[in-house]
Amino acid sequence: MLEGLHYQNAYVCDDLEAGIDLFRGRGLKKEPIIISVDQEVMTPAGPKRQKSRICFIWIGDLQYELIESEIDEVGLYANCLSNGGPLRFHHVCFRIEDWADFRSRVDGQEFPIAMERGGTQDGDLKFLYLDARKVFGHYLEYTWMPNRTWQQIKSM
């Protein structure tokens, strides 16, 4: 299942500020904002807590997401093996236009859901991660958001 607009590559790092430093002088034009995210997500084993510090760096039309995990009850970020460097590639992200249509097809495809957060209202961000490591070596994240949220993300 590969569809939607690929707009993001994401990396796990142990030190978010050190990760950001690696982008200075390599295309980073605007100082990124660090965001704390503390949320409950659904997993095949039930609800779990994910708490992270993240930032988004745009270079051209590609967003780099850096993730410093603080609480990882899902184990989604802890299983990202070291490559010997400060940044460990974790997933690619696609923006989906029609979430209901996309979501209706997820259970019929080959990759298991690792975690999911459906918005509480139609205007909320929705996302899910598919575990595609056996085929691609990484997770696939899919997001849906209203256009106003997309514009906010693009301006970060």
Rank of each mutant, 00 (worst) to 15 (best):
Q109R: 14
F23L: 09
S52Q: 11
S36P: 01
Y139G: 00
D131Q: 13
D101P: 00
F136R: 09
E31A: 12
D131H: 14
K29C: 01
E116T: 00
Q151Y: 03
D131A: 12
F94C: 02
L125E: 11
C80E: 06
R88V: 10
G119V: 03
D124C: 10
I20C: 12
G25H: 09
F136E: 05
A100W: 00
L2R: 10
E40A: 10
E68G: 11
Y129R: 10
Q151R: 14
D122M: 04
L28R: 07
W99R: 01
V92Q: 08
L16A: 12
Y129L: 04
V41H: 08
Q152F: 15
N147I: 15
N83M: 01
H91Y: 07
L81A: 15
Y129D: 02
R95Q: 06
C55D: 03
I34A: 11
K134N: 15
P47Q: 14
N83L: 02
N9F: 08
M156F: 15
Y129Q: 02
R88D: 04
L87T: 08
L81P: 02
V74W: 06
N79H: 08
I34L: 15
D122E: 15
G118W: 00
D98H: 12
H90N: 14
Y11G: 06
P86F: 03
S104V: 00
K126W: 02
Q109N: 02
E31R: 14
S155C: 07
F89T: 03
S52C: 14
H91I: 03
Q152W: 09
Y139L: 14
T143E: 06
S104H: 05
K30N: 10
D107V: 02
F102N: 08
F94G: 00
A18S: 15
G119Y: 07
G19F: 02
D101H: 10
V106L: 04
I113T: 10
Q39N: 09
P32R: 15
G25M: 13
G19L: 05
S155P: 01
A100T: 13
L66Q: 01
E68W: 05
Q109T: 09
D122K: 10
S104E: 05
D61N: 07
I113A: 02
W150M: 11
